Amino acid sequence: MFKKHIFGLLFVMLFSLINAQTKVDSSRVVRVLTYNIYHGETVSAQKPFDLDLLAKIISDTKPDLVAMQEVDFKTKRVLKMDLVTELGLRTRMVGVFGKAMPFDGGEYGEGVLSKNSFLSTKNHALGARENKEPRAALEVNVQIKSGDSIRFIGTHLDHTNDETDRISQAKQINAIFSQDEVPTILAGDLNATPESETMQVFYQEWKQSFKENIPTYPAVNPKIKIDYILFRPANRWRVIETKVIDEEIASDHRPVLSVLELLKE
């Protein structure tokens, strides 16, 4: 009887310990979305250009942070609109644009939306060879509900068949953001498949938020995974959920959502 009592007590203690380790602190949870918005152009929607649809898709995921790629700033093709500001107003989030290059009478690059105000922002130019499109990594720092500060980076790597520039850009990102242990999330269209050399470079410093390589591109009948949410340091984050959103008309990419918990030091 005594042994049974001890065994029962140990079982309760073990269960309590496991439960404590898996309990999620909602004040430390960060919902992250990455979305290549195809400069607002739709794939098969009734409207060829529909920011309201994009805003609804973003809002429906209830994100804290959104990394957007293929973002136009006052180009002719988007009627001189500032897409980040327009989507920020529609989603009731604060936004910032990061220029990668001049384009079509305006600028083209990255966008970040945040539910919380920015502590700081910085746009990092990523090098490219001659006659290749310049790229950028847009960094923001925000404070989450727990009072902790985190860093969030949105990026879009070279899209051409030759992987040389993508590998170089991945190395540049690693060099910039591996100098400290600030809890950091990297999200974007990396234009690289999971087995590629580019992703192997990233995996030297970053942990992936996904367990399965669910395709994200093209939006209609997706065939390959090229959109990612990564994080570092590995011991500061726990993955609660990751999924590819079943959406195929608002852009040529599917949005990807990850829910992460910032762990205490």
Rank of each mutant, 00 (worst) to 15 (best):
N161K: 15
I18W: 06
T22G: 01
I144F: 02
L53K: 02
E248M: 10
L89W: 00
Q179N: 12
S168L: 10
L87C: 07
F177L: 05
I144R: 01
V220A: 14
K264M: 02
Q204N: 15
E110I: 15
A45L: 14
Q46W: 03
K80L: 09
L17R: 07
Q204F: 04
L190A: 03
T242I: 02
T160P: 01
V84S: 07
K80Y: 10
S59L: 06
Q46H: 11
T216K: 12
R151N: 08
G147S: 07
T42W: 14
I249W: 00
E205C: 12
M93P: 11
A170T: 07
T121C: 03
A55R: 01
D82L: 03
T121F: 05
D25H: 12
L119C: 03
R135I: 02
K223S: 15
V30G: 04
E247K: 03
L65V: 00
T155C: 09
E41H: 15
G40C: 10
V12M: 12
Q21S: 10
E130G: 00
K99P: 05
K23W: 00
E197C: 00
V71E: 08
F118S: 06
Q200P: 02
S44Q: 14
A175P: 04
Q21R: 11
Y217M: 14
I57L: 02
A219M: 15
V29H: 10
R254N: 07
V142D: 02
T34A: 13
M13Y: 08
L257R: 04
S120A: 14
D180P: 09
Q204G: 14
V239S: 09
E110R: 11
H124T: 03
L14M: 12
A192S: 15
F15N: 00
A128C: 10
D252R: 00
Y35D: 03
K62S: 04
V256F: 10
N116R: 08
V66N: 00
A125W: 06
T198F: 03
L126D: 05
G95M: 04
F97E: 01
P48E: 08
D25R: 11
T216S: 14
R31I: 02
D82C: 07
V24Q: 06
A125M: 08
H159R: 11
V256E: 05
H5Q: 11
L157R: 05
P233N: 09
P63L: 00
L87P: 10
F152K: 01
S258Q: 01
D64N: 00
